[in-house]
Design a protein around this nucleic acid. Structure first.
Length: 639
RNA sequence: GCUGGCGUAGCUCAACGGCGGAGCAACUGAUUUGUAAUCAGUAGGUUGUAGGUUCAAAUCCUAUCGCCAGCUCCA
């Protein structure tokens, strides 16, 4: 047992190697050079700085600015918050406090609700604990001892969590000052290392996320490596508020909501214009991509929903109505209706693929707590279509849909996209050979389009695998919009057939697909993406003519008429106001072109356009201006 | 649905047991104006709805409708 053969070799960043006795803390090797580190990465695993190194390993610092470091920081912030809460509200029980995308939260058992004033107090206490700069230490303890310990402390939720961990496991505790919490870590070495945090909101949450359990109080917060990043994050939240489609929709007179029809938008003329343009744009693509549009009933005998399986699986979301003793369901989806169009005549393989598109209104009952603006409504339409094809055609069809999806999102200036391929779930319909072929076809179609994708194993629907398209808006928030789903079940349930080339009757495959998804939801996302500055082709008013005095009224009317005749959506502002006032108003209404006309323009028969961002555009003749608008006013044209 | 918060003029918000206000918008008048707000005046309300407490309710209580945040990110 000679001491000197028990040395370990640690590889540090930059190729440096050190030989140290086992048990040396990671911190000691990192410290002089990497004092910013808040954790250590040992053989790729993120651990405490105090972690004793026992075997040969690679060692890297984890900085608070790295994604892993930020997680550590936020997790420690959650503990910091829990400590502050326990100081201020000793009777409160702690439960769990994980890291989330935008920060962290901690759930507490507290009989009263936390108020915004409480949050301020808690935040102040957190700052105090940071100043006290407690060491954060880790210790290991047997499970049963931990259960007893938390039980004795009156932390019954904590004890319950620990009791659900296997009996022989060693578990870890983290201590900072008087506060101790069960946690697997890692954590920052001391509370003084948490520089920038903010508590953002408080809300109810169920114990273990189950609505049958009792309700806890959840406090959300966020933390960053620097004050500057925290400010940036808070500014982003402000910007998101400013762009909120509910606010923009009101300001720009796009749509309203009224309690008389909860979660069902009333589109005003300007909003309806944009809505219809979205449909018109998709229709132009349908011509190129070979879709045929249909109109189908709004309500169907409940028999349809029994046969399709919706009654069994989706009843809670369907509006029912009764008349003449018959029960009808208002359609939440178009697919069952479309099977009737398919089945209306005998189909041959020569008829396939059959692509049926439908912009029909759909109604789904959504629980009152989940509805929100245009993004979660009870009344909406989709750019929905169903493709009936042979199994051999799946890849080519999905390929076509993917091409359309990428074209559409490019048009709307969504530059970032992600695709997820969801494969067979444990509980499913159909044989493995069919699933093999279907999943392979989807993967091949993705590959054919050069699309990188993630696999969500087991996340497919029970009736078939699917591809979801997630787009990121200007604030980098993800939205799941387009979807492509294979379906082997509905053709079965509705006994759909076609005659193949050998004369046998066989089942077609159904592909459900939407590109924009719900038009309402897409509209909402588009508003937030562009902040209300719609591209020229979608702007309800493209140009507003602003006069300086009433002596230009006749000219303004004349050129407005000219523009309208040429298809430019123009209007005049003849009000007896100063130019600055009219400009401000047009600016606030996000009108793309302001056309200033004074005596100068009248005498030279020109216009002086101004862009909505204040860009000065040299004087143009009216035909020149019209040509400019016409050139820019196409999908994918001027932003 | 559940937890919490909030419903006051068209919009954004004050008043928080004691006569419901302001800014913007609207309307009227004056001003005729050159690139983000000219001035003055007028009108606008059973305080979401229904009950209750009180001498007195926008304010306190109950119910109801609606809106907002959250309720899957697992020590």
């Amino acid at each position: 047992m000679s001491e000197n053969i028990q040395h370990i070799t640690v590889a540090l960043p930059g190729g440096e190697q050190k030989t140290v006795p086992p048990g040396t803390a990671a911190r000691e090797l990192l410290l002089p050079a990497h004092k910013q580190a808040i954790a250590a990465r040992v053989n790729g695993k993120v651990l405490d700085l105090s972690h004793p190194l026992t075997v040969d390993c690679t060692l890297e610092p984890v900085l608070p600015t790295s994604p892993e470091g930020l997680d550590v920081l936020r997790h420690s912030s959650a503990h910091l918050m829990a400590q502050a809460v326990k100081r201020l509200f000793p009777h409160v029980q702690i439960t769990i406090g994980p890291v989330i995308d935008s920060g962290f939260y901690y759930d507490f058992k507290h009989d009263q609700a936390f108020t915004p004033e409480d949050l301020e107090k808690i935040e102040a206490e957190m700052k105090k604990i940071v100043a006290e700069n407690f060491l954060v230490t880790r210790e290991e303890i047997l499970r049963d001892d931990a259960v007893r310990m938390f039980h004795d402390m009156g932390e019954h939720y904590k004890a319950e969590i620990i009791a659900s961990i296997p009996a022989n496991d060693v578990i870890s505790l983290y201590r900072q000052g008087e506060f101790v919490d069960l946690c697997r870590g890692p954590h920052v070495p001391a509370t003084g290392r948490i520089p920038a945090f903010k508590l953002t909101s408080v809300a109810g949450a169920y114990w273990r996320g189950d609505e049958r359990n009792e309700m806890l109080q959840r406090i959300y917060g966020t933390a960053f490596a620097t004050e500057k990043e925290l400010k940036q994050h808070l500014a982003l939240l402000e910007e998101a508020k400013r762009r909120d489609h509910r606010r923009v929709g009101k300001e720009l007179d796009l749509f309203i909501f009224d309690p008389i029809a909860p979660a069902s938008p009333f589109f005003l003329p300007k909003g309806t214009f944009i809505y219809n343009e979205l449909i018109a744009y998709i229709r132009t693509l349908y011509k190129r991509y070979g879709y045929q549009e249909v109109l189908t009933p709004q309500i169907f005998d409940v028999d349809l929903w029994h046969r399709s399986g919706h009654y069994e699986n989706y009843k809670e979301n369907i509006f029912f109505t009764e008349i003449e003793g018959r029960t009808f369901g208002v359609k939440p989806m178009n697919c069952p209706g479309h099977t009737y169009i398919y089945a209306a005549k005998k189909r041959s393989y020569r008829d396939l693929p059959l692509r049926i598109a439908d912009f029909a209104r759909l109604h789904r009952f959504e629980r009152s707590g989940v509805i929100s603006g245009l993004t979660r409504v009870r009344s909406f339409a989709q750019d929905d279509a169903h493709i009936f094809c042979t199994p051999e055609q799946i890849e080519a069809e999905v390929n076509g849909v993917l091409r359309m999806v990428t074209e559409v999102y490019r048009t709307f200036n969504f530059t970032e996209m992600r695709f997820d391929l969801s494969t067979r779930p444990p509980k499913r319909l159909g044989d493995d050979a069919t699933w093999d072929r279907a999943e392979a076809a989807l993967a091949a179609a993705l590959a054919a389009n050069g699309i990188q994708y993630r696999i969500n194993a087991g996340d497919g629907a029970f009736y078939g695998p699917k591809i979801d398209c997630i787009v990121f808006d200007a604030l980098r928030r993800p939205w799941q919009l387009a979807t492509i789903q294979l379906d082997f079940q509905l053709p079965e349930r509705f006994d759909l057939r076609y005659t193949n080339s050998e004369g046998h009757e066989v089942r077609p495959v159904m592909i459900h697909r939407a590109v924009l998804g719900s038009l309402e939801r897409f509209f909402g996302v588009l508003i937030e993406h562009c902040g209300g500055d719609f591209p020229l082709w979608l702007a309800p008013v493209q140009a507003r003519i602003l006069t300086i005095t009433e002596s230009q009224d006749a000219y303004a009317h004349h050129i407005c008429e000219q523009m309208q005749q040429a298809g430019v959506r123009a209007e005049v502002d003849l009000r007896n106001e100063k130019l600055g006032y009219k400009i401000r108003e047009a600016e606030v209404h996000k009108i793309p072109y302001m056309i200033v006309v004074g005596d100068k323009e009248v005498s030279s028969a020109t216009v002086a356009p101004r862009g909505r961002k204040g860009e000065k555009i040299p004087a143009l003749t009216v035909p020149e201006f019209i040509a400019r608008v016409a050139a820019e006013s196409v999908p994918g044209g001027a932003p």
